[in-house]
């Protein structure tokens, strides 16, 4: 399962804190934490979109890593259930 060109809403839910996914991929946990804090410091739709895209990009750039792949499947699996 690979993320589509459009930004799936689940990425914004993760950054806004509406949804909490515990990632396996260390970089994802660290970036998630940084982005959630960055968004909450100055919340705006533009910042939410930018942070959500940044988080998704991390996964797209690391698809070879099994932990990143597992996490991406988890994220997009959640998206499909919604």
């Amino acid at each position: 399962m690979v993320a589509s060109a459009n930004l799936e809403p689940v990425w914004k839910d993760i950054v806004s804190g509406k949804m909490n996914i515990e990632f396996e991929f260390l970089a994802a946990r660290i970036l998630q934490s940084a982005l959630v804090r960055s968004f909450h410091q100055q919340p705006s739709p533009m910042r939410l979109d930018r942070c959500a895209r940044e988080l998704r990009e991390l996964f797209l750039q690391n698809l070879n890593l099994p932990s990143a792949r597992n996490d991406l499947d988890k994220v997009l699996g959640t998206e499909a259930q919604e």
Binding site: A27, A28, I30, L31, A34, S38, E57, L58, Q61, N62
Partner: peptide, 11 residues
């Protein structure tokens, strides 16, 4: 570091 371009994207 968390504000650097491509932070965490590359190991």
């Amino acid at each position: 570091a968390p504000n650097f371009e491509s932070f965490a994207v590359r190991p």
